[in-house]
Amino acid sequence: ASTSTKGEYKIQNVKNKKYLAQTNGILNLAGISPYSGLAFTVNAAEAPTSNEAIATSEVAVIAGEGQVTIAGAQGKKVVISNILGQVVANTVITSDNAVIAAPAGVVVVAVEGEEAVKAIVK
């Protein structure tokens, strides 16, 4: 883009030096004179909105052999159910990295305040 003296800008094709122009509402490339180009100005805008209020989850569910490890859920209630919906564990996590015994197969782990996830215990 090149600049004119009025604080306006014009877009120029580097290869053929022609300027972006507008004729009857259609954009095209016009002569090499900057006076034939379509002028535009750049206005300052507000800064983007911050993400400070967005909450992200740091809870991780890791299936192991005969157990499920739950990280980042200290103080939250956890319910582990088998695929038939039978509750196999119901507890409040007291550490940041808790290991809970679970039967082999598919289990559903529901951590308070999070979406339930499936895990395959070996």
Rank of each mutant, 00 (worst) to 15 (best):
A21F: 01
L38H: 06
P48Q: 03
D96Q: 15
T5I: 12
I62A: 00
A104P: 09
V59S: 00
I100V: 13
E112W: 05
V42C: 02
A44V: 13
T49D: 07
T49H: 01
T49M: 10
V121Q: 05
A89K: 14
P103G: 05
V111L: 02
E112M: 05
G75N: 13
G113H: 09
N90I: 11
T23G: 01
I62H: 02
P48W: 01
S81I: 06
Q74C: 14
K10M: 11
G25F: 01
I54M: 04
G75M: 13
A45L: 12
I80K: 01
N28M: 06
L29Q: 10
N16Y: 11
L20P: 04
A1V: 13
E115Q: 14
V99Q: 14
I70M: 05
A63T: 06
V111W: 03
I100A: 00
G85M: 04
E58S: 12
V109D: 00
N51V: 11
A98C: 06
T41D: 08
A55M: 07
K122F: 08
N28E: 09
A98S: 12
E65K: 12
K122C: 00
D96M: 09
K77L: 12
A1W: 11
L38Y: 09
G25N: 00
K77A: 15
S2E: 15
E114A: 09
T5R: 09
E114F: 12
E58Y: 08
L38I: 04
K15I: 14
N90H: 13
Y19I: 03
N13W: 03
S2L: 14
P34R: 02
A71N: 11
K76Q: 15
T91V: 15
S81Y: 11
T3I: 15
S81F: 08
G105Y: 08
A55Q: 15
V59G: 03
K18C: 02
V108L: 15
V61H: 00
N16E: 02
A45I: 14
T3F: 14
V109P: 02
K122W: 02
V109F: 09
P103W: 07
T23D: 05
V61C: 03
V87S: 13
A101G: 12
G85Q: 06
Q67Y: 06
Q67P: 02
Q67D: 10
A53E: 12
I26W: 07
N13G: 04
G75T: 12
V109Y: 00
T49A: 14
K77M: 05
G7I: 12
I54N: 11
G113M: 06
V117Y: 02
G25S: 03
V61W: 00
S95E: 13
N43T: 14
A63D: 04
A119K: 08
V117R: 09
V87G: 05
T56E: 10
I11M: 08
S95Y: 11
T3H: 11
V111A: 01
D96Y: 06
E46G: 15
G85E: 04
K15G: 10
E112D: 13
V42I: 15
V106K: 09
V79S: 07
A44T: 15
V78W: 07
A98L: 10
V106W: 09
T23Y: 03
G25D: 01
N97L: 07
I70Y: 04
K76A: 13
A47S: 12
V14I: 08
Y19M: 01
E115W: 07
